[in-house]
């Protein structure tokens, strides 16, 4: 019997990877989330435990607020930056774009440590201003993820549409609201998901910058896993998974179907 190579065999490594690192871990999370730590039997004890303690809910709400705030601030800062970068009149070469991407080349921990020291030096450190410091750290780290998808959609945007809008009587503000924002919607959605999803589960930045004054959901999960309480940690991880899933579905609703295909997620 001879072995005939078929193109579909090329997908085998991916199937293996997919099973090992995505499907199996998800099932493990679900398994641990619904088993009792003491007995090892199937139970809803983690669910009951999670929703009966207000602390857990508070941490979750704080995390959501931080993630939302970071996303909004990143958009407010990143949108004009991307707009300017994509405009050939202001940005004649790509060097400035590189400047915004370059911080990503530096090790994340070093970057965050440096931010912390800098903030402490100017008197806005985590000890005295934990919320501010955490937000600065999150925005700084995730700003490139806002700028890049926005920049690439803006590059593709047909400039003649802006002229057409002005021609039809729209002043610059009206043009921005009626033409530029709808045209860049795929970029906005992509930027939001790319910031919101990692920030909701980030914990190193908040730990380092708020000097452990602010506990986000990520650090909470980390705490339980470190205390060898895998079952409760897994349940919280499951909640996070559901939240991220919801955020993807919600953002999809905002962009039309054909736009969603061109966006990153």
């Amino acid at each position: 019997m001879s072995f005939r190579f078929q193109r579909k065999y090329l997908s085998i490594p991916y199937i293996v990877f997919f099973l090992l690192f995505i499907i199996v871990p998800i099932f493990l999370i679900i398994y641990y989330a619904f088993t009792d730590k003491a007995t090892g039997n199937f139970s809803f004890i983690n669910l009951v435990h999670f929703f009966s303690d207000m602390t857990n809910i508070n941490v979750l709400i704080i995390s959501l607020v931080f993630a939302l705030a970071t996303t909004v601030i990143c958009l407010i800062i990143g949108y004009p930056i991307a707009y300017i970068l994509a405009n050939k009149k202001f940005n004649k070469n790509k060097v400035i774009v590189m400047l915004f991407v370059m911080p990503m080349w530096i090790n994340f921990i070093i970057r965050t440590g440096a931010t912390r020291d800098l903030l402490t030096w100017i008197g806005l450190g985590g000890g005295t201003h934990p919320t501010f410091a955490t937000l600065v750290g999150l925005v700084y780290n995730y700003l490139p993820f806002t700028v890049l998808p926005l920049y690439s959609t803006m590059l593709k945007m047909d400039r003649s549409l802006i002229e057409a809008s002005a021609d039809l009587g729209a002043n610059p503000v009206q043009t921005f609201i009626k033409v530029v924002i709808p045209m860049t919607m795929p970029g906005i959605v992509s930027a939001c998901t790319m910031v919101f999803m990692p920030t909701i589960s980030s914990y190193v930045i908040s730990d380092l910058l708020s000097e452990y004054n602010i506990v986000l959901f990520g650090s909470y999960i980390d705490l339980y896993f470190n205390q060898a309480n895998w079952n409760f940690g897994a349940f919280m991880a499951l909640i996070m998974l559901i939240l991220v899933g919801i955020s993807v579905v919600v953002t999809r609703k905002f962009s039309k179907e054909e736009n969603a295909r061109t966006s990153l997620w």
């Binding site: 047909d158 549409l161 021609d167």
Partner: peptide, 12 residues
Amino acid sequence: NTVFQKYALFPT
């Protein structure tokens, strides 16, 4: 008002 060469219609 202008009719543009590549129409410049709003795709959204």
